[in-house]
Design a protein around this nucleic acid. Structure first.
Ligand code: ZN
Ligand code: ZN
Ligand code: ZN
Ligand code: ZN
Lengths: 142, 142
DNA sequence: TGTGCAAATGCGAATCATTCCCATTTGGAA
DNA sequence: TTCCAAATGGGAATGATTCGCATTTGCACA
């Protein structure tokens, strides 16, 4: 199946209309290993001669995030969010506070912990945000 | 030792001048189990007839955070931060997405995990942000 | 294959937490 | 007490994100 059909299906499964903008945004995300900000995506689309409004980029990302098609990553000590297409894989990132590079970590260390919290606090856990920061191996010596 | 002297020491240990605003902010934080936003603190100070500028509240909180005297908690799906006096204790919180209540969790599940990341990625971990969200026991049935 | 309407989009204005600027005040070392 | 770097006040600026509303478009159904 070609990518566009896969995107159509993803959208349909979320009761979302399949529009060229949504497809285009999904394509940009698919072409990047690194999570992108709304503005990053906006710029890339412009470079591909796709006319779109920045508001629409935000709206689409928000919608896709709600439908759990795209994940939203909050960057520590910043008020920016970045987004990535998750292949059903919940994951986290390492942020280098010096060069600001993001490194994806596969897997999640918190599954057991969430169960523990539910038992201990009678809390129904829906999810969590986790970002780890420090120095990458290039920046380790400061 | 009375609280004010303790605060003086905390500030001195961070090479910070001991000012009435800093002390007042530390006192507000000390009087609250729940983390407070800059504006929360600002309002409480006003109620206590303490004249202060909101900018100063932000600056003081930022400074105390840098010196590791106060911890900064990012609220999921919001661009607000809240702050708390940590008694040397690194901790996390459960956020109820319905009533927006925050519940403190003692301890941290990530110590081992950070070591693992250092080994696996050659990354020097400095810290992490973790917030867990879901429904508290009052809101569990939606 | 055309119609209708809810959903999606464009675009500029608005929001809102936070930061910045710069003139004034203040803590505390000497 | 003097003096200066550090801290503060207050208002403007910032910057990411959201909102309002007019216009367009996908797509279910006839
Ligand atoms: Zn780096
Ligand atoms: Zn996780
Ligand atoms: Zn609740
Ligand atoms: Zn922790």
């Amino acid at each position: 199946m070609d990518p566009e059909n896969r995107f159509d299906e993803m959208l349909k499964s979320g009761n979302l209309k399949s529009t060229k903008h949504r497809i285009a945004i999904l394509e940009v995300l698919k072409g990047n290993k690194i999570p992108l900000s709304a503005e990053d995506i906006y710029i890339r689309l412009k470079q591909n001669n796709i006319s779109i409004s920045l508001s629409t980029v935000y709206r689409v990302l928000e919608t896709l995030h709600e439908k759990d098609i795209v994940s939203k990553v909050n960057i520590p000590d910043s008020n920016r969010a970045v987004y990535e297409l998750h292949g059903n894989e919940h994951r986290h990132h390492l942020l280098c506070v010096k060069c600001r590079k993001l490194l994806a970590i596969d897997g999640c260390p918190l599954e057991e912990y969430e169960k523990l919290l539910e038992d201990r606090f009678g809390f129904t856990v829906k999810g969590h945000n986790l970002e780890v920061y420090g120095y990458c191996n290039n920046c380790a010596g400061y």
